[in-house]
C-alpha cells in the first residue's frame, strides 16, 4: 500500500537499457509500421522523461531525449487497428471511458488489452505498463522478440 519513504523517482524507462537495438529481421510480422523519425517539436510538446517529471522538449537532457526516442520507437512497434465491432469484449476505452465507435484508431498491447491509440500512447509515454492489468509492456515486447 503506502510507500512514501521509498524513492518514488525510480525510472521505469531504464528498464529499456541495453536491449533497445532491434534487428528488423526479428520483428514480428504485424509490426510492419516502422518507427517514425524522432521529431520532438512536432510530435509532442511536453515530455515525461520519468514519472512525475514533465518538461518541454527543448529542456530535456540528451539522455532523456534518447530514452524518449527509444520509448516512442517501442510504442510504434505495438500493433494498431481500426475498431470494427468484431471484438465483442472490447467495448470501451477505459482511459477516456468512451465507447469505441466504428473507425476509431486503436492500439493493442501484448496483454491483448486495447485502447484508443491517442489515449494509450499518452499513457505509455509516462508509464510503460498496461493501465488495466499492470503488465509491463516492454518485458512482453522483448519476450516477443526473443521467441519470434
Amino acid at each position: 500500500m503506502g510507500n512514501c519513504f521509498k524513492s518514488s523517482s525510480n525510472d521505469d524507462i531504464s528498464l529499456l537499457r541495453g536491449n533497445d537495438h532491434h534487428d528488423p529481421a526479428l520483428e514480428p510480422a504485424p509490426f510492419v509500421e516502422p518507427p517514425p523519425p524522432y521529431r520532438p517539436q512536432q510530435r509532442m510538446p511536453i515530455f515525461h522523461p520519468s514519472p512525475g517529471v514533465s518538461r518541454p522538449a527543448n529542456q530535456l537532457t540528451e539522455d532523456e531525449q534518447i530514452k524518449i526516442a527509444q520509448r516512442l520507437g517501442l510504442i510504434n512497434h505495438l500493433p494498431t487497428g481500426k475498431y470494427d465491432g468484431t471484438n465483442k469484449k472490447a467495448k470501451e476505452c477505459v482511459i477516456c471511458m468512451n465507447e469505441f465507435v466504428f473507425g476509431d484508431e486503436l492500439r493493442y498491447l501484448p496483454c491483448m488489452h486495447c485502447y484508443h491509440r491517442e489515449c494509450i500512447d499518452d499513457w505509455l509515454m509516462r508509464s510503460f505498463t498496461c493501465p488495466s492489468c499492470m503488465e509491463p509492456v516492454d518485458a512482453a515486447l522483448l519476450t516477443t522478440y526473443q521467441t519470434s
Partner: peptide, 15 residues
Amino acid sequence: AICLDILKDQWAAAM
C-alpha cells in the same frame, strides 16, 4: 496527507 501508492507512483489510468 495520505501515503498510498496508487495515489503516487502506482497509479494507472484505468483506476
